[in-house]
Each structure stands twice: as structure tokens, then as C-alpha cells.
Write a protein that binds this DNA or RNA. Sequence first.
DNA 1: TATTACGTTTAGTAAATACTAAACATATAT
DNA 2: ATATATGTTTAGTATTTACTAAACGTAATA
Lengths: 174, 174
Amino acid sequence: MSNSLNQIKKNFTEGLSQISRFWGFPKGMGAIFAVLYLSPTALSLDEIVERTGLTKGAVSTEVRTLARMGLVHRSSKLGDRKDYYTAETDFYAAIRSILQERQNSEFDRAVRSVKETLTALEENWVENEEWNFVYERVKALQEFFDAIDSLAKAVIRLESLGLSNVTKILSVLK
Amino acid sequence: MSNSLNQIKKNFTEGLSQISRFWGFPKGMGAIFAVLYLSPTALSLDEIVERTGLTKGAVSTEVRTLARMGLVHRSSKLGDRKDYYTAETDFYAAIRSILQERQNSEFDRAVRSVKETLTALEENWVENEEWNFVYERVKALQEFFDAIDSLAKAVIRLESLGLSNVTKILSVLK
DNA sequence: TATTACGTTTAGTAAATACTAAACATATAT
DNA sequence: ATATATGTTTAGTATTTACTAAACGTAATA
């Protein structure tokens, strides 16, 4: 029965919605990506609305952030003023894109505040045990963040190298 | 002035709170970790309450999940029935612990649903173009998740090797 | 056995977030 | 110029999540 495929698609979409929520994104985002990912053709905004059950407004904004993350692509057909959307299928590229997105934003500001703590400690320096202790700890955290940062940058640089290769490399290390 | 150190600590705590929220954890968790991290001595639950401004209930539950993640450790002093808490300072160990925690939980269940989609497609197979298309896509996603999974497992295996070393290795690759 | 010192659980509240419905903006077609 | 088709923004609502206040459980002490 042909209905079976729709049922399967629905299950898949629900699964991706959950995964989306798990990573701290709205579940609607996962659903939108899922319907695009399973569609052989590019979909218009209204088609996405129809298949996800969300409203135009929600789809409009969420599809934009998906595009900014590089998980979907917006295109247009000649002589048709609708926008059309397709899913990115190169997930490694998408990961790079997401990491790059995160480089800026909230996170960077917060990490910077750790570095500021460090300089504040240096500038108002008082030689005593606790001051030393706090300084060492903050410094260690800052170095950790630096390491994370360079790891992220390294991953970004892996233009053509699939994540699976990285996995192989890591498994050789132990 | 000695007050300055408290001010610096407060800024630091606020920074970690934001970082915590950014990664999808309650900001209170970040605050709790921060005060423990900057304390030279182990702190009791009530001391944490005092320094974070949270209530006992909140600290009680959040300190427990921090402990489960391996980010703090619970200990007790002889002849004192309070529990005492300290921050984990080996962040690489903590990362491993968090990854391990996530192995189970929500995420795994969702990922499994993708695999289920795949078998559902195989079992109800209908030979046509769309069916093939959907199958290929779902399969590609499933392989991607597998890669992520083995990457996580590889990282977990890196007992003694610091993340900073991984960074170096990655930077050599490009 | 009653009291005290703790940690945990629970029931309710406040705050944050995702989403809806509808007004709006803009370009195209009539 | 008016109407139509489209995407966006906005204002409000519903849902979820973090947190509070207080009751509760439990073990140690008196």
C-alpha cells in the first residue's frame, strides 16, 4: 500500500524532531529538515507548511536559520517567484558550517569573559594564597577553551576529509 | 581591596552560567560549578546555596546531575554528616564522562528510530523511484550517525591523551 | 522517644522558548 | 491603480523548563 511510505516518512520526521530538540534546537526545525531531506524535489514554503503542519511564520523563520547553518539551501525557479528549499546532504559540510556559525554569537562572548577574568586578576594582583589559587584555576579553564577553539577550527579546515576518516585516525591513537 | 576578588569571582560565575545555558544546561548548573571551581576547599550544600543564591532543592538536584556528568565530586568528612563537593579539574576526563552519559538517554533512542525507518523500508519494499530515493537518503543519514557514534567512542577511549594533542594531530592533517 | 541537622521530593510559580494568527511589506500581474 | 501571490514581522499564547518554598524522610544526637 502506498500509504505505508507516508507512514514511514512520518516516523522518520518525528525521529529527527526529537534529535533536533536534543541538540537544543526547536523540534520544528528537525521536522522541516526531515521533509526536505526526504523530498526528491525542492519544496516551496507553502509545501513545507502543508507537510509539517506548522504555520507560515514559523517555517519562514526556522527555514532561515536552517539556511544560515547551511543545512538547507534556498533557490528559485525562473518565472516563478516562490522560493524553493532543498536539504544539504553533505553532513560534514553542514557540521563545519554550524561550527563556524557558533564561532561568533553568545558562546564567544562568554568565553571572552573568562579571559577578562584572567586579566582582571593580573591587573589587581594581590600576592596571597587564594589569589594564586584562583588565578591558576581560571588560567587552566582558559587554556581548555583555547584547546576546544583550535579543535573546532581544525575541524572547520577539514574541507574534503570526511568525519569518518577522522574517526579512523582517532581509533588508531589509543 | 579584598572585595575586588569577590567581584572578579562573581563575573567569572556569570560567564560560566552563560556558557552553561549556551550548551543547553540550566544556568544554575554553571554557577554551581563555578563556585566550586574557584573554591580552594570542598563546599557543603548549604555553602553552595549561600554563594549561588539558589535554594537547597535546586542545588540538591543540580549538583546530582553534575556529579553524574563527572564535573563535580561528592565526598564526606569523617565525623561530619554533611556532603562536600569539589569541582573536577580534568576537563578532558569530564568530556569523556559527558559523552558516555549521552550514549544512553534520549539521543540514542532517536537515532535508533532512524535505523528503524531503514528496516521498515526494507521490509515493506516497493520497487519504484521514490522508494529508492528515500531509502538512499535515510541510509546516508544512518551512516552519518554511525560515524558520529564511533567518533564519540574513539574520544571516550582517549584515556590519557589530552584533547590538545588531538588538536595538534588535526592541524597537521589539512 | 523527641529533637536536630541534614538531604530529597513535591507541588506550585516564574521565566524562557516555540509556536500561532494575523497584520504587514513588496513585488508581480491584471 | 488594484488586486494577488508571496515572504516577513509582530503581538500574543501555549508549552516547556528552571527554580522556589515548604513538606518530607532519615539518621544522628540528646
